[in-house]
């Protein structure tokens, strides 16, 4: 489903954020990506979504070489991915409901079908009652859930969440992880970046540990 092979990413300016990273994730797998701040977790996600391009190596998503995609093909790659951004990227000038409607605007659903799906996604994250609120009026955890609702509204096969539990108390974080587990149970491939070690410890899932841009440990390969 997702494969990295000898991937390096050097940002303009010369900083090497990923160094020779290789791994492969099967469809339906749940994987944590962890590592210190600046280790390269967000960079790894950006390469999957073609927000950044690998300097060397190949990134495969669904059999497509992401680095070689034509610009016109990139939107269609992204539509198959549910993305939860580290900074959430909510639009604060429109309602909760309209934020979730955003990815449906360029789908082929009729207005009524799109609204139905948006409400289903909001219901799933427990925000249906707040659909008329504005993101500013939501708590941090509610904003995270809104970002998740927007990511899953198109029912993507892959869900990628960058620090979805940052700044949340343990209980709220656990509820959000439970939400991802429920998506994973219905067959969605889920990638979650977090540096919450306790959270990882509570779940028996595959973990990729990055350190200074290198893949330090892949729990699927065992050993240290």
């Amino acid at each position: 489903m997702i494969g990295f092979s000898k991937v390096s990413k050097r940002y303009p300016g010369g900083f090497e954020a990923l160094k020779d990273v290789s791994f492969s994730i099967a469809a339906g797998e749940l994987t944590f990506v962890t590592g210190h701040s600046g280790a390269g977790k967000s960079t790894l996600f950006k390469l999957i979504a073609a927000i950044e391009r690998a300097t060397s190596g190949t990134v495969l998503v669904n059999g497509q070489n992401v680095g070689a995609l034509r610009p016109a093909a990139i939107p269609f790659l992204r539509r198959n991915l549910g993305l939860v951004f580290q900074d959430q990227k909510l639009l604060y000038d429109r309602s909760v409901f309209d934020n979730v409607m955003l990815p449906l605007a360029f789908s082929d659903f009729s207005g009524r079908e799109a609204a139905r799906r948006a409400r289903a996604a909001l219901d799933k994250v427990g925000l249906l009652a707040r659909e008329r609120a504005h993101p500013m009026q939501l708590s941090g955890g509610e904003q995270q859930r809104l970002a998740i609702a927007r990511a899953v509204v198109n029912r993507p096969a892959v869900l990628i969440a960058d620090e979805p539990t940052a700044n949340l108390d343990a209980g709220s974080a656990e509820r959000i992880i439970a939400l991802f587990l429920s998506f994973n149970q219905v067959g969605v491939t889920v990638l979650i970046a977090t540096h919450d070690e306790q959270l990882i410890a509570r779940h028996a899932a595959r973990t990729l540990r990055l350190a200074a841009g290198g893949l330090e440990h892949d729990s699927a390969e065992g050993g240290e």
Partner: peptide, 16 residues
């Protein structure tokens, strides 16, 4: 700008 950026990240085509 922000709205355009976000819709692009969510898979909007340039045409859209």
């Amino acid at each position: 700008r922000q709205e355009i950026e976000v819709t692009k990240l969510l898979g909007a085509t340039d045409g859209f």
